[in-house]
Amino acid sequence: MSPGPALPADSEPDGTTVLGASDVARALTRIAHEIVERARGTDDLVLLGIPTRGVTLARRLAERLAQIDPAFDVDACVGELDVTMYRDDLRRQPTRAVGVTRLPAAGIENKTVVLVDDVLFSGRTIRAALDALGDLGRPRAVRLACLVDRGHREVPIRPDFVGKNLPTAQSERVRVRLAEVDDVADAVVIAGRDDAAGERGAR
């Protein structure tokens, strides 16, 4: 949710593609297996995506879980968690639209909740998500899955399942493109690399 410094959308259409569609697919398959391994099955698993792309990723992960364990019901175990009203940076930004929070019908009480986000950066989105979860119920455990961990954490939060660790500079901008949301092939793109190199040189 925090891909980098606030820039107008699509101000930098190009950038370096670091993961292609097949890399993203392989990473998600591996994460799905890791989730099953860690939870010793798929009982009481709930996947909650953080809008926008986390929701898509959660659904894709759930489909893979269903392939691994046919007893896993995708629709009954996937939800979305909007964290807008729990953010700590609301007053530093223009007003954000509030998104949808939709939990599985069975709720999250005593479940193992896996939060799913596209890019893990400062960790503040996940902190907000943990606060939001606390108001919704008391899961037995909360885990964190992200497609890309780009570092630069500002709070003590670490992911349990990572698609790809990407060392980045603070000024770089990491974006995840997903077919369902962006109408382009899946990709992870880093933009602003040259600026970052210049900045590093200056230091």
Binding site: M85, L90, R91, R92, Q93, P94, T95, R96, V98
Partner: peptide, 8 residues
């Protein structure tokens, strides 16, 4: 929310 939250 809309009037107060995003006040930078």
């Amino acid at each position: 929310y809309l009037l107060m939250a995003g006040d930078s």
